[in-house]
């Protein structure tokens, strides 16, 4: 698991836009409503790579994303290795 998302389910309005953009199909709508009566998004985080597409499109800014290695760091590592393929924990 290279990435992880945390959804504030009490603020989520269940619009489902995060589900449409997740490349790993890692988000589903909960079967249990929150205190406002919306069915919030729920992450399984099994295959998450921390791309943050879900957080980018979330209109209510309820998703927080963390990942093992920052994309910038990955780019820097690639630059240093001048195209030599190395295993990156990402």
């Amino acid at each position: 698991m290279a990435g992880k998302i945390k959804i504030n389910t009490e603020r989520c309005k269940g619009c489902g836009l995060c589900i449409t953009v997740c490349p790993k199909n890692g988000i589903v709508l909960s079967k249990h409503p929150n205190k406002h009566g919306y069915f919030p998004a729920q992450a399984n985080n099994h295959d998450c790579n921390g791309c943050a597409a879900c957080a980018t499109i979330c209109p209510d800014v309820v998703i927080e994303v963390s990942r093992e290695v920052n994309i910038v760091e990955v780019k820097e590592i690639k630059k240093q290795n001048c195209g030599i393929k190395t295993k990156i924990n990402y």
């Binding site: 921390g50 980018t56 800014v61 927080e64 994303v65 963390s66 990942r67 093992e68 994309i71």
Partner: peptide, 12 residues
């Protein structure tokens, strides 16, 4: 794990 996306301070 490093947080890469969170609510920005100017958004209440």
């Amino acid at each position: 794990m490093k947080t890469v996306f969170k609510r920005t301070p100017s958004l209440k």
